[in-house]
Design a protein around this nucleic acid. Structure first.
Length: 960
RNA sequence: GCAGGGGUCGCCGAGCAUGGUCAAAGGCGUAGGCUUCAGGAGCCUAUCCUUCAGAGGUUCGUGGGUUCAAAUCCCACCCCCUGCACCA
């Protein structure tokens, strides 16, 4: 076993036996409750989960070290269809799927056999998931764990839905869904062989009259064009039927009759016939009462909607093309026994005025695009273009009855409503493209009746949800407007279905609460599930009244105790526990959940809880990529949490992920980076151990003060970043930048003996502990400190330890080194001897004066010169000052405001002493003899007269 | 199509809100040196171009604009990612 593995297991066991992550209410301490959306258990936890949860864990550990009482509970989502589907695929012997389970998920064959039981499968993954979460070091209170099929959880969901219903958030209605006739269930995107993303569209059917008792319901998205109809198109070769539809006599395609049966229509087919039978007959426009002929249109697809299409050649390219085709070959009409004159006499009727087109936009666009005939693929594009143009910019002309003068966009919905009221229109749903189910059956649109909805359309509910968003923190801030747009955008959500695992709807037989709807406020359940499990409270006892008491304080505990059999103390303890922990302080997930789960969570909290129990903060992060691509089991780039920890160790996995991205950016998992980091951590262990072993001497030179000072700014930045869930920045600073500080100190110092260095390493480990907990525990134990680092006190910024003089001293050294190497680079030589010359005192006087002026406002050279001339100490140097002033002004423009302020604070610097102290270091660096002189030093070696160039903070240099 | 997020010096990624301190942090990679029996690790240095003196030049998706000054502000365009509903 590797050393890493060894101490990871050691510390995991120690934390567990010390119960450090088990959190109970403690009135003396402030609480922080963090949550992570429970993962769905049809597979193992993967690195995507790991990324999101690592952010939660880093935050939890950080807050715990800050002294908060931190609760992080965890649960498992078993609700829904996919678990059943997965199990069925195993039962069916789906080799492809079984291979994935064996090879990707790493399921042993003996276990796999038992997956024919979906609950067994879920339990298997749950057990594996728990082990993985523990092995990566998530600081979870496992006493509160549950799955969503546990009876006690289901009682909670019953309580939730009872309340939602009573408050009027649950409504009933009908809804069209993509439906597999064979499976007899809705076919979601994941269940489809082809046709992903296809959703149903609603057509308006205009009920043209064939005769007094027979209708030709023509399907359209543009019912306003009824005023421009010139004829009807029927595919002469397609099969049509005459059928009674809800008591009316309709002529529609054979397929349409079947479809309508699933859309709440009573359909009785009376006879079947070919379309050509209709050609040449006339029909009546039910609005204008005018009569028009029925013509053959081969472009008409009987599989689409009713298979009956009316023709508006002025505004619909297909209609114009079909008409033109016929008019060019009127003889085809003879085949149907129809007088060709009937066709030749048809003229387009203009009804919509639209900018950029004349009276007949369809005719124009066909000509402009050079479309040949009704079979030309460009006709589709022309249709779309014109539809959009006329919808957005079209105005109905005088011939359009009561709608004349109105824009198409504003009138469309009104017109549909009116026509339906008049009995001249109906509607049906259909799919714009074919959808094939996994079972290879072609899907249709079915209208589900008596469907239950969460009424997210309710404006008052939306308003409350907005209020909830307004009072919480969202990380990153830029996600806040997104939540608000989603809240505005959500509509009724079907919250129950008939198949899959889940909690039965308390009032609706045969309905099961759908998976995104049973996972919205369960964070509240964590607060009391500890007691429920510890006291073995039976589900039957958890009546809605009991939960009303726990969550709302409603009712009398002693009476409830009698009825429920739960004793009063326990009831009161549960109420107290809820009140202590709720609301949660952070919920963090990937951004894919913003438009659904996270928004639902906000909606439901707003509906069920008073504002003081609304979420405090929500964090959103990107979607994990693997080697630049989306992770997929089928793509062969699926990495499990367990696998990652085994291969790279927990700390490297966590940190590798967290260094990937923050905010809403997508992190990219690169195996090479993770294993590099693993190596880095090994190096870190040796580095830190070495220091811990020998840093004992109580020195306190400028260098120790520099280290201490530098550390303060690191502490400040890491703390501030973690508070905003900027985990990447925080880790970056904690790990790399602080490490670089320590290295610099050691180089300058030349040894690692100072106790101050050891203290700095301890601070460093504390800052790293939320990210790399195992390694930090291990090193912490070497420092001789008592207790776990995971509950050690988080370092706090101490302004008293900031030493700007020490920092400026080091800045002087680094600047000087940069200049020196710049010169060396330009000279392209290996130096033998380097001489530095520090500025004379009078130059400091000038420098500081200019510094004051530049920070106060503008430094005017002539005014400065006057002031300097008036100073009797400076008077003798006026000739040199004239050249020096512009140089100083220029040099100062490159100095940051912060450093200028520091320079003002510390005044003149004893560069001579500082540089002399660094001679040994500089000598090693440049591998040359290094000497330091004052610019007027008597014994100075200055063959090229460089010394006079010296400026404060910029000693002159001579190299040979 | 609608909505949200992006395009930065080999790669990953800071910076952009509050324009100058930005040739632009940090990590990785690469090159050289030190250390080592060797390998690895570690440590140091360099890494847009030019420059024998600490300097200059050209860069931040594309094209315009504002300004003494723009990676940062404004406009237009191109490209990429994510979500879009009965499903986790």
């Amino acid at each position: 076993m590797s050393q890493t593995k060894h101490f990871e297991q050691k510390w995991q066991a120690k934390w567990e036996s010390a119960h450090v992550f088990e959190a109970d209410p403690d009135p003396k301490r402030q609480k922080v409750m963090v949550t992570f959306p429970y993962p769905y258990m049809n597979g193992p936890l993967h690195v995507g989960h790991t990324f999101t949860a690592s952010r939660v864990d880093a935050y939890a550990r950080f807050k715990r070290m800050q002294g908060y009482n931190v609760l992080w509970p965890w649960g498992w989502h078993w609700t829904g269809q996919p678990l059943l589907g997965a199990s069925q695929r195993v039962a069916r012997g789906d080799q492809e799927y079984i291979r994935v389970l064996l090879e990707v998920d790493g399921v042993p064959e003996a276990e796999l056999k038992k997956f024919v039981d979906p609950l067994y499968m879920a339990q298997y993954y749950t057990n594996e998931g728990r082990l993985a979460a523990k092995s990566i070091g998530f600081s979870v209170d496992w006493r509160r764990e549950f799955t969503t099929v546990m009876p006690t959880y289901q009682k909670f969901i019953e309580w939730q839905y009872k309340n939602l219903k009573e408050k009027g958030y649950v409504t009933r209605g009908t809804h069209p869904v993509v439906w597999c006739p064979k499976d007899k269930s809705p076919t979601g995107d994941h269940d489809r062989q082809s046709g992903e993303g296809v959703t149903s569209e609603e057509y308006t059917l205009i009920k043209y009259k064939l005769d007094e008792k027979t209708y030709l319901p023509a399907a359209t998205f543009r019912p306003e064009t009824i005023y421009g109809v010139t004829n009807m198109w029927i595919n002469p070769d397609a099969a049509y039927v005459e059928a009674t539809v809800n008591g009316e006599n309709w002529i529609i395609s054979q397929e349409a009759a079947e479809k309508l049966k699933e859309q709440e229509r009573k359909v009785e087919v009376k006879r079947e016939f070919k379309g050509k039978e209709l050609i040449g007959k006339t029909f009546e426009n039910p609005v204008t009462k005018l009569k028009f002929p029925i013509l053959p249109g081969w472009f008409v697809d009987a599989k689409q909607a009713t298979g009956v299409v009316y023709s508006v050649p002025a505004h619909a390219p297909y209609d114009w093309l079909a008409l033109r085709d016929l008019q060019e070959k009127p003889e085809v009409m003879a085949d149907f026994g129809v007088d060709p004159q009937l066709v030749l006499g048809i003229k387009p009727i203009s009804i919509i005025k639209v900018e950029g087109y004349g009276d007949f936009p369809a005719v124009e666009i066909v000509e402009h695009m050079g479309i040949k005939n009704q079979h030309d693929p460009k006709a589709e594009e022309a249709t779309k273009t014109l539809y959009k143009k006329e919808f957005h910019g079209g105005v109905l002309k005088a011939s359009c009855g009561p709608y004349a003068g109105k824009s198409v966009r504003e009138v469309k919905d009104i017109l549909i409503k009116d026509f339906k009221k008049m009995g001249v229109a109906d509607s049906m749903y259909d799919l714009p493209e074919p959808v094939i189910c996994r079972c290879m059956t072609q899907c249709i649109v079915k209208i589900l009746s008596d469907q239950w909805f969460l009424n997210y359309s309710d404006p008052q509910w939306k308003q409350k949800a907005h209020a909830a968003v307004a009072q919480m923190n969202i990380y990153p801030d830029s996600a806040k407007p997104w939540f608000n747009t989603v809240i505005d955008w959500l509509r009724e959500w079907a919250c129950a279905r008939t198949t899959g695992f889940g909690t039965p709807l308390p009032w609706g037989k045969g309905w099961i609460i759908e998976t995104l709807s049973d996972s919205t406020v369960y964070m509240a359940f964590y607060t009391v599930n500890k007691q429920i499990k510890q006291n073995n409270v039976k589900a039957e006892a958890l009546t809605p009244e009991v939960f009303d008491y726990i969550f709302y304080g409603k009712g009398n505990p002693s009476e409830l105790a009698k009825i429920s059999g739960i004793n009063v103390d326990l009831l009161e303890a549960m109420r107290a526990e809820f009140l202590y922990w709720y609301p949660f302080d952070l919920r963090n997930s990937a951004k894919e959940l913003v438009p659904n789960h996270l928004s639902f969570c906000i909606f439901h909290h707003a509906a069920l809880f008073p504002p003081e129990h609304w979420p405090k903060a929500i964090g959103v992060n990107g979607m994990l990529m693997v080697e630049g691509k989306q992770m997929h089991k089928s793509k062969g780039n699926f990495i499990t949490m367990k696998g990652a920890v085994e291969k790279y160790g927990a700390d490297a996995t966590r940190c590798g992920l967290l260094l990937g991205a923050e905010g809403m950016d997508d992190p990219d998992w690169r195996a090479e980076n993770i294993s590099d980091l693993q190596g880095k951590f090994e190096g870190l262990m040796g580095f830190a151990s070495g220091i811990i072993a020998c840093a004992k001497n109580g020195e306190d030179t400028m260098l120790e003060r520099w280290l201490q000072s530098k550390l303060q700014s690191r502490i400040k930045e890491v703390t501030a970043s973690l508070d905003e869930l900027k985990t990447r920045t925080a880790l970056q600073v904690a790990l790399f930048e602080t490490w670089n500080d320590l290295r610099w100190y050691i180089q300058r110092k030349g040894n690692t003996n100072a106790k101050a260095l050891g203290d700095a390493v301890k601070v460093w480990l504390k800052m790293l502990a939320p990210f790399a907990p195992f390694l930090c525990e291990e090193l912490w134990s070497q420092t001789g400190e008592e207790g776990f680092i995971c509950v050690a006190q988080w370092p706090t910024f101490d302004a008293g330890k900031v030493d700007v003089a020490a920092e400026e001293q080091e800045n002087l050294i680094t600047d000087l080194m940069t200049d020196t190497s710049n010169i060396l680079k330009a000279m392209k030589i290996t130096p033998k001897r380097i001489c530095y010359y520090t500025a004379a005192p009078w130059k400091w006087q000038v420098y500081l004066k200019i510094l004051d002026k530049t920070t106060a406002g503008e430094a005017k050279i002539n005014e400065l010169m006057k002031e300097f001339a008036a100073d009797k100490d400076l008077k003798p140097h006026m000739k040199d000052i004239a050249g020096l002033v512009p140089r100083i002004i220029k040099a100062l423009t490159k100095v940051s405001g912060e450093r200028k302020a520091n320079m003002q604070k510390i005044k003149a610097v004893d560069e001579q002493t500082i540089l002399e102290g660094a001679v040994g270091f500089l000598h090693e660096r440049f591998n040359a003899e290094v000497s330091v002189y004052g610019e007027n030093g008597e014994a100075r070696f200055d063959p090229k007269q460089r010394a006079a160039m010296a400026m404060p903070y910029q000693p002159a240099i001579y190299i040979e």
